[in-house]
């Protein structure tokens, strides 16, 4: 999956590093890290990434609101939602707005890679 661009929208520097370490050795380019959804939407416009990893709990604009804003801009946008909580109501809410993949924190590199490849393969 060489050359695909990934944008990380997460207020945790640890997650940004974890995503880079999982995906960059596999040919992905992790273009940037937005610390909240508002900046994330701006960075989406700037980078036009192929995949976005999106945290649920963030200041200013949370993951659900950010996903809505991104999907409104680009209905085909590929989002993996990350959360320390994995309850079904959150997943249902996200699925309803068009998020197709979820991953629970902490995640293994292989796990993230598999989900990103699955999204891109669709």
């Amino acid at each position: 999956m060489a050359g695909y661009k990934v944008l990380v929208i997460d207020d945790s520097p640890f997650i940004f590093k974890a995503v880079k370490r999982a995906l960059e050795p596999n040919g992905f380019e992790v273009v940037d890290n937005a610390p909240n959804g508002k900046i994330g939407v701006e960075m989406y416009d700037k980078y036009q990434p192929d995949v976005i990893t999106l945290d649920v709990t963030m200041p200013i604009m949370d993951g659900i609101e950010t996903a809505k804003a991104l999907i409104a801009r680009a209905p085909d946008v590929k989002i993996i939602m990350l959360s320390a909580m994995g309850d079904e109501s959150l997943h249902s809410q996200a699925r309803e707005i068009g998020v197709k993949q979820f991953i629970r924190k902490p995640f293994k590199p292989d796990e993230l890679l598999e989900k990103v490849n699955s999204l891109l393969g669709e």
């Binding site: 508002k38 200041p59 200013i60 604009m61 949370d62 609101e65």
Partner: peptide, 8 residues
């Protein structure tokens, strides 16, 4: 969208 509150 939420905002950081100024509470002074």
């Amino acid at each position: 969208m939420s905002e950081v509150l100024e509470l002074k």
